[in-house]
Every structure is written in structure tokens, then in C-alpha cells.
Amino acid sequence: MALERKDIKNIAHLARLAISEADIPEYARNLSNILALVEQMQAVDTSGVTPMAHPLDAVQRLREDGVTETDQRDHFQQIAPAVEDGLYLVPKVIE
């Protein structure tokens, strides 16, 4: 499956990745090669095979309801790029 320029742009947008126009052909080539590799899967008939999401046949463990965490805002926000009054700041979100 060969990807085109517009496919790459779409995917990059979905993934929120800025890529330069100049790099698009290289991405298209590499991604197409990877998809060609992946295409080999289609040769196998998997009808009736249960999809395996997890390596182990285990079930979800449940945690008792209870507050175990304390306020660490100052600690966590030391590594934040932009904060004010305890809030994380982002460019204006328009609703």
C-alpha cells in the first residue's frame, strides 16, 4: 500500500506531528515500506481466530475505593512548562 502526500499529511495531523513539506516524500517511502511488510499478514486466513489483546489470560484486578493520594501539585508543577495559580496554561481554547 503506497501512501501519498495527502495521506502522510492526514496521519501527521491526526497524530499532531509537525513535519516539514520537504520530509514528506521520505515519510511516504518509509511508511509505505513498513505497510508493505505488514501486508504479509493478509496472506494468512485468520477467520475464527480470537484476537489476543494480552499475553496472559488474566482478568482485571479491582482496587478498593479509597483516597490514597495526597496533594503534590507544587511538586508536579515544578516540571510544567507554564503554570499560573495552580493551573496549566495552554494557548486559548475556543469553544
Partner: peptide
């Protein structure tokens, strides 16, 4: 989003994110 991620990730990571997204 786009520039932070575009600048922060290297080529191989971006490739794999894009393959997975697709």
C-alpha cells in the same frame, strides 16, 4: 501540539507513531 511533538520526537519515533495512527 504539532510543534512540541514534531520537535521533541526523533524520526524513528515519528515513523512509528504514524504507522500506529494509520
Amino acid at each position: 501540539y504539532k510543534r512540541s511533538r514534531g520537535e521533541g520526537f526523533g524520526e524513528e519515533v515519528k515513523r512509528r507513531i504514524m504507522v500506529g495512527t494509520y
